[in-house]
Computed example of a mutant assay.
Amino acid sequence: MNRRNFITKSVATTAVSLLPLSFWSTLWLQEFTLDELTGKANLSLYGEGYQLREEVNKAFSKMQAEAKKEGIHIQIVSAYRSYERQKQIFNAKFSRYTKRGLSGTDAVKKIIEYSTIPGTSRHHWGTDIDIIDAKAKQPKNVLMPRNYDEDGPYCEMKMWLNEHSEKFGFYIVYTNNPKRKGFHPEPWHFSYQKTSLAMLKAYQDIDFQKIITQDTDLKGRAFLSESFLETYKQEHILDINPALLP
């Protein structure tokens, strides 16, 4: 099997256009607050050992139960993540990379290979999940692309997801399309399409740059210029699986 095809199957670019009109009319009627979109709201979340929106958790539970019938134990290792938690991750990485000798600019570039700037993470929405196969022999670092390859511990789960995840509404976010920019491919990161589509549409209307640049506790803030953040928006926020674009 071709390695690229194994990691993530080809994206069906017509997937979104084939959705019924009733889907879209219901979708766009939803409203989300600024705090909700940037991880600062006090949301009602569900799950055991993780947190998701109610409808997302229900869909995930169904997918998890179906996979278990075939001996695959899907486990969420990261779901909802608040603004403050994302900032802790960002700040810790910035400190670590600059201590290793990277410039502030290079440290930020290194961080955004896989990690988001706080206030811009899809994990703020309670719609996205990072998953592993709990049944497999666990590697030292679980969220590594090689773990989902043909000879990786999560290969069986990845094959099952390639075949079934979209039936439950979950789509891989950061594909391995060689023309895609932004975050490196993440074969572990899936998003619940119906809700995240609406949230991304709403997110595009907010001034996220203002939120980021006014946070005096955010390390590396001085290196996040207006032009840098505009490029970040186009490449890291919007250059994703087309099935997840409104």
Rank of each mutant, 00 (worst) to 15 (best):
D207M: 15
K158P: 03
S44F: 08
E48P: 00
N57T: 01
L229G: 04
T26G: 10
L45W: 06
R81N: 09
I74K: 02
K179E: 12
P178A: 13
P242N: 08
E66P: 04
P20S: 08
D205A: 15
D106L: 15
V142M: 13
A202D: 09
E163V: 11
Q234K: 15
Y174K: 05
A15F: 12
Y192K: 04
R221E: 04
R180V: 04
I89V: 11
I111Q: 03
E235C: 11
D205M: 15
P242A: 13
F183Y: 13
E31P: 01
V108E: 01
K40M: 11
V142N: 07
M63N: 03
P178C: 11
E230N: 07
S115K: 15
P242W: 09
G101A: 10
M199I: 15
Q88V: 04
K210G: 07
P242E: 04
R81G: 09
G39E: 01
L102Q: 05
M159Q: 11
S44E: 06
A65Y: 02
I131Q: 04
A67I: 01
L245T: 03
R100F: 14
P118V: 10
F170Q: 01
T13H: 06
W24M: 09
Q75W: 10
E163A: 12
Q64H: 05
G169Y: 10
K93H: 12
F32M: 07
H236E: 01
N2L: 15
R100N: 09
A107I: 05
L200T: 01
G126P: 04
E54V: 00
E166R: 08
S10H: 09
G169A: 11
V173C: 14
K135A: 15
V142G: 03
L29C: 06
L224I: 08
T26C: 09
L29F: 10
R100Q: 14
F168S: 05
L19P: 00
M199L: 14
L143C: 02
G104M: 05
P178F: 13
Q193E: 11
Q138S: 13
N2W: 14
Y83P: 02
P153L: 12
I211R: 12
Q88L: 15
I89A: 07
V56A: 14
Y80N: 08
R146T: 05
T13Y: 10
L229K: 02
R221L: 13
D128K: 10
K181F: 14
Y50M: 09
G220F: 05
E230D: 09
H124Q: 12
T213H: 06
A198W: 03
L52H: 02
A222R: 12
L229N: 01
T213M: 11
M157R: 01
A67E: 02
G152A: 08
G119D: 00
